[in-house]
Amino acid sequence: MSTPGDDAGDDAGNHAQHEAWNGPTGTIWTTWADRFDAGVAAHHTAFLDAAEIAPAEAVLDVGCGAGRTSLDAARAAVDGPVTGVDIAAGLLAVARRRAVEAGVRNVAFREADAQVHPFPPAELDVVVSRHGSMFFADPVAAFTNLAAGLRRGGRVVLLTWRGIEHQEWMRSFLSVAGVRNSPPTDAPGPLSLSEPARIHRVLRAAGLADVSVTAHRAPMYYGADVDDAFGFVADLQSGLLGDLRPETRDRILTALRADVAAHEGADGVTYDSATWIVRARRP
């Protein structure tokens, strides 16, 4: 669902991301939107607390997905406008529905590529992004564009993944699927802002100051029990398994179920995970 003037996918460098998030990847995230939110809930609260959103502030949520962060930001900025932007039309439809169901009126959603979208200059107090800032084709250009939308003294607060050595869930799933190479740390993907040195370099090159990176560790939730979690995880891995021979796919799914079962506990199925809470300011 788009709105007039939407510009998602305008930048050629982000074309691959636009295709993915409006294709199979977006379908999975739309189907499991509630589960994704539950999965990172233990990180979400600390991230929002770090944003320190005040009642009258103007907030932009980058890579807003199904809108959980935008809606929580709107509840905090009760007298201020909140805008969520994303390139995934299906997720934005979920976000708009959630806003209506929750009766949150000071939030709007726009299908737009935050790397190139012409945001009004110097109108924002806060830019937040929960795991949505790691997919820019040109992160310096993207954060330069976002910084231009901030008022002097306005801030950026991001939640990004730490390195793969801190992500039990990622190591487990890749290993079971027989994938030897981890996602790159210097290209669009979940680990592109996993190294503090790169985070500092990118944000400073974009004109932001007072960059800080704080570690946070919490379990990732995958489901109430083995059956519940396995259905979710198997769907997540479907892109890796789709072209395999049936016997190979069945072997991997059996191993995946066993791995999920090994992580069942009193709080359901959980895997260890770690994030960075990143803060910066427009000088």
Results as ranks from 00 to 15, higher is better:
118 P>G: 05
60 L>I: 05
198 R>N: 00
13 G>F: 01
107 V>E: 02
74 A>L: 06
51 A>D: 08
85 V>D: 01
153 G>P: 01
112 A>G: 03
237 Q>E: 12
149 G>W: 11
145 N>H: 05
264 E>P: 01
197 A>N: 11
20 A>P: 00
240 L>D: 09
59 V>Q: 07
8 A>V: 06
28 I>Q: 09
173 F>T: 14
123 E>M: 13
206 A>V: 04
33 A>V: 06
137 A>F: 08
252 I>P: 05
208 L>A: 02
234 A>H: 10
244 L>K: 10
94 V>A: 08
233 V>P: 01
253 L>C: 01
46 A>L: 10
50 A>E: 02
81 P>C: 01
255 A>Q: 12
21 W>S: 09
252 I>K: 09
17 Q>L: 14
205 A>T: 01
127 V>W: 04
139 P>Y: 04
189 G>W: 04
204 R>W: 08
243 D>R: 12
280 A>R: 06
101 E>S: 12
41 A>E: 14
56 A>N: 13
63 G>T: 09
253 L>W: 06
47 F>R: 03
78 V>S: 15
219 P>Q: 03
148 A>M: 10
23 G>C: 03
282 R>D: 04
243 D>N: 12
111 E>M: 15
213 V>S: 06
12 A>T: 14
199 I>T: 08
61 D>F: 07
3 T>Q: 15
78 V>R: 15
25 T>H: 13
194 S>T: 01
179 V>N: 00
148 A>N: 11
97 R>W: 10
212 S>M: 08
64 C>R: 08
69 T>Y: 02
261 A>C: 06
35 R>S: 08
